[in-house]
């Protein structure tokens, strides 16, 4: 069974059609990349998958693990293992990273009918992950994304993903704003989570990330439709030639 089936998806924002008949099929353990010019609808797809309001799905359906996704509340999608790393993560002053991670993690545990982790064990669980991402000591006590640089925000998204261990991760431009070193760390983090069951959708502009996290397939999204599918070599071609030849 596919983990994600997007069939003939049409989505409008404020009555303006953005996605127009999008098809996407993802198997467990597969990593797919979606590339496309600005404004082609990549983030729209990511947001619709995560359940954000203010998008009208005018046609089509989405199945996640065989279940009708569009009728699920955003928090139920998350607890069922769907994770979106946002292109522009929001800042939440006054709420520390550790507080958010703890509440989110425990919400997942309850959904899976597992006991909440005790404070000490959870601390250790977090420390393992902040270390592997080489995050500073005070990271967990800082308010969520508040005053973070673009790159820090991306790494924070990745930390949340490593803590929640989703079945399907959608990473919306996780590589933007990262320098070469930071990108290598983020790529290593993503690769560490790659296994035969976990699927990922990498939304990106650049082949740099894809060279370090080689995808099984590359899709090109233009004008709200997938216009081309290929392998990693397609990403390289797009970097050389741009998107113009595809219109």
């Amino acid at each position: 069974m596919n983990i994600l089936e997007v069939r003939n998806l049409h989505v409008s924002v404020m009555n303006k059609p953005i996605l127009r008949g999008l098809e996407l099929h993802l198997k467990p353990g597969e990593v797919h990349a979606i590339m496309g010019p600005n404004g082609s609808g990549k983030s729209t797809l990511a947001n619709v998958l995560a359940g954000r309001g203010d998008y009208q799905v005018t046609a089509g359906e989405i199945l996640y693990q065989g279940q009708e996704l569009l009728s699920m509340a955003p928090e139920d999608r998350a607890r069922a293992g769907l994770f979106l790393a946002f292109q522009n993560p929001v800042e939440i002053p006054g709420v520390s990273n550790v507080r958010l991670l703890k509440e989110a993690f425990n919400a997942h545990q309850r959904y899976r009918r597992l006991p909440e982790m005790d404070a000490m064990a959870f601390r250790a669980y977090l420390n393992e992950r902040t270390k592997s991402l080489e995050l500073s000591e005070d990271w967990l006590l800082r308010p969520v994304n508040a005053g973070f640089s673009g790159g820090e925000k991306k790494r924070n998204e990745l930390l949340q993903m490593m803590v929640l261990e989703p079945h399907l991760a959608i990473l919306d431009e996780i590589d933007s704003g990262l320098d070469i070193d930071a990108l290598a760390k983020v790529a290593a983090g993503i690769n560490a989570l790659r296994d035969t069951k976990r699927s990922m959708l990498l939304i990106t502009h650049y082949p740099r990330l894809l060279e370090q996290v080689p995808p099984d397939k590359v899709h090109v999204l233009i004008g709200g439709q997938i216009v081309l599918c290929g392998g990693l070599d397609l990403a390289g071609q797009l970097e050389e030639r741009g998107y113009g030849w595809l219109f």
Binding site: G51, G53, A73, E75, R79, V90, A104, Q160
Partner: peptide
């Protein structure tokens, strides 16, 4: 509302 959605997307009701 952005912050609310962000938290929901992390599994909080």
């Amino acid at each position: 509302p952005e912050a609310l959605f962000y938290l929901q997307s992390r599994g909080l009701n």
